[in-house]
Design a protein around this nucleic acid. Structure first.
Lengths: 335, 335
DNA sequence: CTGAAAGCGCTTACAG
DNA sequence: CTGAAAGCGCTTACAG
């Protein structure tokens, strides 16, 4: 066994073997340009027989393309986010593979975008997916200035940015109104960092949910921007003191903490207080009692995001904002 | 703003502007071949001034390289593994970036290696890192047959495979002997799928730990290949019935389950029984009482793995097997 | 319908 | 010390 990689067969080899020009071989494969049916079949047959794989890098160079898409992963995640990103990435990879694209990874740690800069400055990607964005986002600034095509997972307040997201606002609106039907009265809302666009949308949906039943939220029971878990625990106690019949949690992490606190206080769910979450997540999955929550398909989010950036790369026009559907999963916790 | 990517400056532009040949520019950058000091500085200055970045793809084509390394991630992970893989990947990315390489992602789901096949058949990578391998591994078969350079994270029983791992065997040996010092008598060992090479090494270390104190393990207290959590719970009870003074757990997932079971049985750690784990992990981190365990630096594992595959790509010789150090962290649970 | 030639942006013998 | 030319493996006007 030699130490070298096996030398791959090239388009020139095929041309020589078949007694045609490289042009013809190229055309047979791409389907572009006129070519005789017989000639074409000949080439295709040869390719199949010899299991020829064109060198995508060379193809890319000739077309000023790379057939790579850059994906920027955040590093400062917590456990729950990790599974979200992984699953989304899986969706991206799946669709990319089908379209003959590959994923080039970059990381974003504390808004250090050097990793992103490298892959785009080195011309290694045709487009970029940002897995997480911020209100003021150096990634977006950089990509705009470089005029590179990109898509964001989740909503962004930047103008002109193509974004794919679940329809959090309407999801929260609907869940809120469903819960309001069950608890004739006081519903508390806890958690949510308003620096995140998604939190803003959830809050909006919450208010709109109230509107649908002709009421308006009791602002004493809405506690956002809770700084830490200790604060959160206190907010749970306060909600109970104000006789909240149901606690809505901004996301699954909040919800787990709330449930633990209720457990410590010997409050039974749903007998003493109902609980629901605006986001499903792995930690909520096997909780007893089962927890009512919104349910989003993360892998699908990845697939749609991947398809969108590839469409953009290939010159198709795409929607400025794509909102994916959601499900409301009613479980024991709001019975 | 045009719809096109900004056209990058090329080596030809520099050559024209400076009135030298492309050869000279190339040489100035690479440092290869003879070139006058003054000419060289001229070029370098121009490059810095205009912030020129060579097109790595073109460079790669000319050198039959890609400056990409493929990383194959497993998909059938559980939560705990996920953080391991993420952190390892982070290490790989860090060193790759420093060496001007990038990460191309592939997935391995149920030993479907089509994703891996695509990136190597398409000539998109110079080498591959396998994040997880199996006793009979189609990934390894494929890469060997293709004669592509690759490295595995963790140990493999295949011959001739370059592997990077923590020194699990000696780590387990040392922890076992430390624990034996504290519990003059009966130590139980629970968990570990013997289809995994790492489990085999841990078990070996466990036995060797006994040897160091001149004893041999009580086989009634060694329970490996435990099929599920129910079984595991039963094994915990059995260990207690046999008056085990300490329970050693093969990994953190096992350990968490064991701790929960002990909690249910109202057994106090370490008063009623001591506990230690052969692997640290996120779920063990904040446990009360704090848990004695082996501690491994996962990011470092990634860094070393990345450096190794790059060394191989660049023709340097590397060790067949690299074993990284470990730490024994004594905590409350074995007091 | 097919091919010769130029080009994508680099590197690298070869020659001077 | 420097440059003209060929080459990496493709694509694509252009010409016939």
């Amino acid at each position: 066994m030699s130490d070298e990689k096996i030398k791959n067969i090239t388009i020139a080899d095929i041309a020589a073997d078949l007694g045609v020009s490289k042009t013809t071989v190229s055309r047979a494969m791409s389907g572009k340009g006129r070519i005789g049916q017989k000639t074409r079949n000949n080439v295709l047959e040869y390719i199949k027989l010899h299991d020829y794989k064109p060198n995508i890098v060379a193809k890319g160079l000739a077309q000023s393309r790379t057939y790579n898409i850059g994906v920027v992963m955040p590093v400062d995640y917590n456990m729950m986010d990790l599974t979200f990103f992984q699953e989304c990435l899986l969706g991206i990879e799946e669709i990319a593979g089908l379209m003959e694209y590959d994923i080039l990874l970059a990381y974003n740690k504390d808004n250090d975008i050097s990793s992103l800069e490298r892959i785009v400055n080195n011309g290694k990607v045709d487009g970029v997916i940002l897995m997480r964005t911020f209100i003021n986002d150096p990634q977006i600034e950089f990509l705009k200035q470089k005029n590179i095509k990109f898509v964001t997972v989740g909503s962004s307040n930047y103008t002109g940015v193509i974004q794919i997201d679940h329809d959090h606002k309407n999801a929260c609106k609907e869940l809120t109104s469903v819960v309001l039907m069950k608890c004739s009265g006081t519903v508390a809302l806890l958690g949510g960092d308003m620096n995140h666009v998604v939190s803003q949308n959830r809050l909006k949906g919450f208010y709109e949910g109230y509107e649908t039943v002709g009421k308006s939220a009791d602002m004493n029971l809405v506690d956002i921007n809770i700084e830490n878990n200790i604060m959160l625990d206190k907010k749970v106690e306060e909600a109970l003191e104000q006789n909240a019949e149901c606690i809505l949690c901004m996301d699954d992490a909040i919800c787990v903490r709330v449930l633990n606190k209720l457990h410590d206080l010997h409050k039974k769910v749903p007998k003493d207080v109902k609980v629901a979450s605006f986001y499903n997540g792995i930690m909520l999955e096997n909780y007893v009692p089962s927890i009512t929550s919104l349910s989003f398909n993360t892998k699908e989010l990845g697939i749609v995001t991947g398809r969108t950036i590839i469409d953009m790369i290939e010159g198709k026009s795409v929607a400025q904002k794509t909102l994916l559907p959601y499900e409301i999963v009613l479980k024991e916790s709001t019975k």
